[in-house]
Simulated scan of single mutants.
Amino acid sequence: MRTAERSKIAKLSDKSGLPPGTPVYTGERSPDETKIRIFLYTEENYEEKTVLNLDELKDFSAKTGSKWVIITGLANTQLINDICEFYGMHPLTTEDILNTHQRPKIESFDDYIYIVIKVILPMEDEGIYSEQASIILFKDTIITFLENDDRIFEPLIRRLTASKGRLRKNGNDYLFYAIIDSVVDEYFEIFEIIGERLERIEDSVIISPEPEILEDIYSVRRDLIWLRKSIWPLRDVVAQLSRGEYYLISDNTEIFLRDVHDHLSQISETLETYRDLAAGLLDLYLSGVSNRMNEVMKVLTIIATIFIPLTFIAGLYGMNFSYMPELNHPYAYPGVLLIMLAIAVAMLIYFRKKRWL
């Protein structure tokens, strides 16, 4: 079992014996304080503020307009719990926000929709970094909870700051769609990186299947398995959002959500293709190693076959009999060597003719 899985189980064990709805943070502790950014906007106006405590958040939330609250850093469980209570969230929602090992899902309550989504970002070493995002849609407010990093939303924030178009005109449900879409768009970049890794591995397997390649293949396969666990449930979540079952989502936004579902279907097909390719690369690697071993065994077998008659001749004349007339012949030694050489050359010619060499 890998270290990450052991860490995950250890964190979840902290909740053992606690009643449902108990806020316990199960992610990695961040050294940063919980940061709260709030964006207030209408079609004509825009305001942004970073608040330091719940009282400031309450004052800002009382203003008229659509609001987007981004909360980064979940280690301060008391503050997270107070914020959730202020907005009237169910205790189980608070528990799920702090349990950062959730699979993508959707839950509907009387006055809000809660979804869990996995934010996946590339790393410098071609690996992938993931964290959980919890998104809550109210009538006039969206709240986004992130573990550590909100950089994925910076392009969306810039659009919100500069735009007086669709993003600020169509209401909170459209921003809700835009948040999901920005996360899904990042998946395409992840799969581009994985595709490049697979191409390099394929070239290496064909040219020289070294043992280090096997570790790379298994690394890609683990990433693909993990991505599948994050993407397939999300596709079901978006499909459910686009069916017109929620009064907080307008008919116009449902059309855009169906487009996100199409993107997720495309990503899922790419995922399955890459999984098949990774499995094929593993088979190709094992076949290449087997072929190299067969080549080595063939060379050793040919060498051993050539030496069989030579060993017989050497053994025959190595017997310690008193009467072996040819041993006294002046040309016996070079004659035997020539015979042995002729046999070896003849066998090599025969092997070459049979294309065994």
Rank of each mutant, 00 (worst) to 15 (best):
Asn291Phe: 12
Glu186Phe: 03
Glu215Tyr: 04
Lys58Gly: 06
Gly165Lys: 06
Leu214Trp: 04
Pro91Glu: 04
Asp150Lys: 11
Tyr177His: 15
Val24Thr: 11
Trp226His: 15
Tyr187Thr: 07
Ile97Glu: 08
Leu54Gln: 04
Glu199Ala: 04
Leu79Asn: 04
Asp262Glu: 13
Lys49Cys: 00
Thr94Pro: 10
His90Ser: 07
Gln240Gly: 07
Arg235Glu: 08
Ser204His: 10
Leu316Pro: 11
Gly315Gln: 03
Ser204Cys: 06
Tyr317Asp: 00
Asp140Lys: 07
Asn291Ile: 09
Arg200Thr: 06
Ile70Asn: 15
Asp251Leu: 12
Ser208Phe: 14
Ser7Val: 13
Lys164Cys: 11
Ala279Val: 13
Ala346Phe: 12
Thr50His: 06
Arg275Asp: 09
Ala162Lys: 14
Asp181Arg: 06
Gly171Val: 02
Asn81Ala: 11
Thr144Phe: 06
Leu156Glu: 10
Asn99Met: 08
Val238Trp: 00
Met293Val: 07
Ile106Pro: 07
Ala133Met: 15
Ile255Gly: 00
Gly195Glu: 01
Ile217Cys: 05
Tyr317Glu: 00
Asn81Met: 05
Lys229Ser: 12
Ala278Phe: 02
Arg103His: 14
Leu57Cys: 03
Leu198Ile: 11
Thr270Arg: 11
Leu257Thr: 00
Asp276Met: 01
Glu212Gln: 12
Phe312Leu: 15
Ile180Ala: 14
Gly73Glu: 06
Leu310Pro: 02
Ile349Val: 15
Leu257Asp: 00
Asp150Asn: 08
Ile201Ser: 02
Asn45Ala: 13
Asn170Glu: 11
Tyr333Ser: 07
Ser230Phe: 05
Thr42Gln: 01
Asn45Arg: 15
Ala304Trp: 07
Asp216Asn: 13
Ser230His: 07
Val345Trp: 07
Asp251Cys: 08
Thr42Pro: 02
Glu47His: 13
Pro31Ala: 08
Ser7Glu: 12
Arg235Val: 01
Leu277Val: 14
Trp232Ala: 04
Ile38Val: 13
Lys58Pro: 08
Glu43Met: 12
Ile193Ala: 05
Ile267Ser: 02
Phe145Gln: 02
Ile36Gly: 01
Glu33Gln: 14
Thr141Cys: 12
Thr141Glu: 09
Met1Asp: 14
Asn294Tyr: 10
Tyr114Arg: 08
Asp82Pro: 02
Glu295Phe: 04
Leu121Gln: 10
Val69Tyr: 03
Arg168Cys: 04
Ile128Met: 13
Ile97Pro: 12
Arg292Trp: 03
Ser108Arg: 10
Lys164Ile: 10
Ile180Met: 15
Val238Leu: 09
Glu199Thr: 07
Leu98Gly: 00
Ser204Thr: 11
Lys67His: 06
Leu40Ser: 10
Ile313Ser: 07
Ile71Gln: 03
Leu167Ser: 10
Ile303Ser: 06
Ser242Val: 06
Glu44Gln: 12
Leu167Gln: 11
Ala279Cys: 04
Arg103Glu: 07
Leu257Tyr: 04
Gly171Ser: 03
Arg275Tyr: 10
Phe86Leu: 09
Gly335Ala: 14
Glu107Arg: 13
